[in-house]
């Protein structure tokens, strides 16, 4: 099936041109980066923009670096970039661990981490990790630059805080020394959308940041769990306490990918295994990053 609708296409060289193109568009417009979601939606006739603004010719959107413990991820950084970056492996290993679970190489070579959170499907793999890393999303629009904390970013099913005339420029996250994990439930070993996922970050003070994916309309941070086990190593008792709280933190649904019950059960299993692995990794042992925990 071809893309059934025609549209205009522009490839601006600057952010200013790009935001102007979005603002000037009388109909609807879509921003194109990797296109792995957008082109599929165009083909499915799920979106019918009048204008597509390709941001790949804009300089300065490919940063992937750490300075003063703050990592910057530009909006054109692909999942492959994350996986191949030694900076990411050293400072933000959950990003590469999650990246490896995204589809397959041919998709990851194009798909961007920012595109992933702009599409904002409940199963987006970047969501829980960016929540656990307390990321900020930086945007530019007609009124200039602004930034949105990731927890305010996801506002609903496939809905974000981005206004239609804004472009995401980059993400930032302040990274403590930490261990962590991204654990993803899939129906089999091959590429799959998350049926449930958990991202866990733990620092040397046993301060935890825990977020779940695919078990609510948006990725969700599990503050209550974090508060309950803060400062304590993940012993059996602590894990049991955390696991007992999981179901009140999430609102999974039944769909053809999994039942709500299995999703909830697996969030418990993944949290239990993930807490152990995250703390081991913090200590420099445990399963290597990118090793599957389930």
């Amino acid at each position: 099936m071809v893309i059934p609708h025609d549209f205009e296409y522009v490839r601006p060289n600057t952010l200013e041109e790009a935001t102007r193109a979005l603002a000037d568009c009388s109909g609807s417009a879509q921003v194109l980066a990797g296109g792995t979601d957008l082109v599929a939606w165009l083909r499915d006739d799920a979106v019918h923009p009048d204008l597509v603004v390709d941001i790949k010719a804009i300089d300065g959107l490919r940063d992937l670096a750490v300075a003063d413990r703050t990592m910057t991820v530009g909006s054109l950084v692909t999942f492959t970039d994350l996986m191949e970056s030694s900076v990411v492996a050293e400072h933000a290993p959950l990003l590469s661990e999650a990246a490896e679970t995204v589809a397959s190489p041919g998709i990851r070579n194009r798909a961007t981490v920012v595109g992933n959170i702009c599409s904002a499907v409940p199963s987006c793999d970047a969501g829980p990790v960016l929540l656990a890393y307390d990321a900020h999303v930086h945007l530019v629009g007609p009124e200039g630059f602004r930034s949105v904390p990731i927890e305010a970013w996801f506002v609903g099913l496939r809905q974000t805080a981005r206004r239609e005339d804004e472009i995401v420029t980059h993400l930032t996250m302040e990274l403590p020394t930490h261990g962590g994990c991204y654990v993803k439930l899939m129906r089999y070993g091959g590429e799959d959308l998350a049926q449930a996922a958990v991202a866990i970050v733990v620092d040397d003070a046993h301060d935890y940041r825990i977020a779940f994916g695919a078990v609510a309309p948006t990725p969700v941070r599990a503050h209550a769990v974090e508060d309950a086990i803060r400062g304590r190593a993940p012993t059996e008792d602590v894990i049991a306490e955390a696991v007992a709280m999981v179901r009140s933190e999430i609102s999974p649904i039944n769909d053809l990918r999994a039942t709500a019950e299995y999703r909830a059960h697996m969030c418990e299993v993944m949290l239990a295994r993930g807490l152990v692995a995250a703390d081991q990794r913090r200590n420099g042992d445990g399963p290597e990053y990118r090793t599957r925990l389930i």
């Binding site: 397959s104 089999y188 070993g189 091959g190 590429e191 799959d192 053809l256 990918r257």
Partner: peptide, 9 residues
Amino acid sequence: DYKIPTAFD
């Protein structure tokens, strides 16, 4: 959503 095996499966 109709999962056929990949090289991992």
